[in-house]
Design a protein around this nucleic acid. Structure first.
Lengths: 340, 340
DNA sequence: ATTGGCACTCATACTTTACGAGTGCTAAAC
DNA sequence: GTTTAGCACTCGTAAAGTATGAGTGCCAAT
């Protein structure tokens, strides 16, 4: 069992190592923190911590650095979420205050978060499932190409091009548009999706082909287009922290750009709206991100659709500060979207 | 004056240095290329090239590497644009073939180009000026918030949220929508912008406030929203080539993420549709990109709107291959957009 | 449980030495 | 005039040896 003081020592080690990037030794601890005991005592505590695999030595005779397990314990039990500084609060309000459309808000959000934390910030587009259909527009682009635009009541605009082998009949198109808006307008997406299936049957046979294709495309817009987009900012920060990675940051950069991996990871991590969940180091190994930590929090788009906002960085990061920033930004974002 | 053979030597040096990243010496040149002369002769040529500042020595007694001026000469006069390999052609067609909407096409384009060149690929959104208004949709999001959606005949969808201090009258909104579509539908953007100004005067006084705000917002959507967006892919490639930079790539990454700098740079470089323009090393110093080369070509969106597509990477890059790739992708992109 | 003392470890920095790729120059050959 | 062989010289890099010192682990005393 690890004593209370041992844990305090762990906290000190995490703190100092994050700040200095250098393995911290017993002597440095007694100097920088007021434990009121000697270095030898700290050494005993450190031996304990090492036995528990909470800290490790990069080489035989050097200071210790926290292990992933150490960070985990630190995050779960040793850090109290300190409130943001006044300057940080102010930054959030000015940065997100003057907001325009949805895309814009998410864009500002990631840039803000990456500035606050000096890490790569990420935000996921919320699923459309709880939004309501506000308007559907069908616009012919050419004889055989059609653009369907789906507008939701929370300001999202989703578009899609539909290709036909035979020319589109303007008349049929207008009827279909009216009909779609009449039937689907105001419905929640999930309900709209259900309604879509039955819709084709009522259409005059000669307009059947058109209707089928459009309905199919809309269905995909609503369903398949679930939570498959991320916005990112601050990739340069990954370069800045490059020395925290044992190898190259190339694979990490690739994973970030690929998005697919991150989306899976986001999916697996719970997106609690009132907490910040953290995934540390090797916990992300299966995603090729064994040396990075990801932290995220849920935010609610209107109607209670929940998506995630968070950040990614080297395992050695300022968890305390970053968690506070993620939490604050997530809350502010929810608030902002609820107002709109 | 530099002899013909000296230039051939420069070509060899550029080629070998780009391939190996190592300063190339006289001996290596006679080994790898069949000049039919001895190393000493090559040395004489190299002395000439050095006098002309086309090559330089990293340290007194080592091989030579091309200077920016050397690359410039190489690009302007020594490289012949080789056609792409069959595999590359194939990649372009399969990658861009199955295209959906405009955003999607540009997204695929950058990813493709970054894969072909192993550099950071960039593509600029074309201005809307020559596109035609296809449809304008005004959708109330709440009492005081309005979403205006502008759809062009080439499939672009631009959106904007407009905020009001007083509640929106649904009736007035419907009228305004009908009127806007009636007046602007089918007009080219530039003409539409002109028409907008006179439009407010004809509106009933009590709807004046609404109309003014909407017209103002639309004006901005059309005009201000000119060429201010870039899509990027392959940032990881910058990390891969990190060793080609003397310092950190951090500032370069920042510039790329900032976009503003790049957009200025894009603006200053000519966007010829039939050529690839290249800006090398110190030529970009004023943009904080003194160690990178940028190359781009124009592509035409429908109706002859021209924007740029290209790439960015370390000065030491395979200009020959990359120029071919940029040119091919730009052409294919133009063709694809013309068809659509 | 804590502490001072002390031997031991080992990464880092520094110096020295050796090596060799590559140049520049000169004088001879073509 | 151009090309070439020869050779002295430079200088970065790698290898090897040496010193330093931060930091540990352990033990016996408090």
């Amino acid at each position: 069992m690890v004593s209370e003081r041992s844990l305090a020592v762990l906290r000190a080690i995490v703190h100092d190592y994050v700040a200095s990037r250098e393995p911290v030794g017993s002597k440095a601890i007694v100097e920088r923190h007021s434990f009121g005991v000697s270095a030898a005592t700290i050494r005993n505590d450190m031996a304990l911590l090492e036995e528990e695999e909470l800290i490790a030595a990069p080489h035989t005779s050097s200071g210790r650095i926290p292990t992933d397990k150490g960070y985990r314990l630190f995050v779960d039990r040793l850090t109290d979420v300190k409130p943001l500084s006044a300057a940080q609060r102010h930054a959030i309000e000015t940065f997100l205050g003057a907001s325009a459309d949805f895309d814009d808000v998410l864009g500002r959000t990631v840039r803000l978060l990456s500035q606050l934390t000096h890490q790569v910030a990420l935000v996921q587009y919320p699923s459309l499932s709880r939004a309501r259909v506000r308007h559907i527009e069908l616009v012919g682009l050419s004889d055989t190409r059609l653009l369907s635009v789906l507008i939701t009541d929370n300001g999202r605009v989703e578009q899609r091009v539909i290709e036909f082998s035979t020319p589109i009949d303007e008349q049929q198109l207008a009827e279909l548009r009216t009909r779609l808006n009449g039937v689907l307008g105001g419905l929640a997406m999930t309900d709209a999706a259900e309604r879509l299936t039955g819709l084709v049957d009522d259409v005059a046979p000669d307009a059947r082909a058109l209707a089928t294709a459009v309905v199919h495309a809309l269905g995909e817009q609503v369903l398949a287009h679930r939570q498959d987009r991320l916005v990112m900012a601050g990739a340069a920060n990954l370069v800045r922290t490059e020395s925290d990675f044992s190898g190259s940051i190339f694979p990490v950069m690739e994973a970030i750009e690929e998005q697919v991996v991150l989306l899976r990871l986001f999916g697996e991590m719970a997106a609690d709206q009132n907490a910040v969940s953290v995934s540390i180091g090797r916990e992300n190994e299966s995603f090729g991100l064994g040396e990075t930590s990801i932290m995220l929090s849920g935010y609610s788009a209107s109607q209670g659709d929940i998506a995630s906002v968070g950040l990614l960085g080297p395992t050695r990061m300022d968890y305390s500060n970053n968690m506070a920033a993620v939490r604050a930004v997530a809350r502010y974002l929810s608030k902002l979207l609820a107002e709109g």
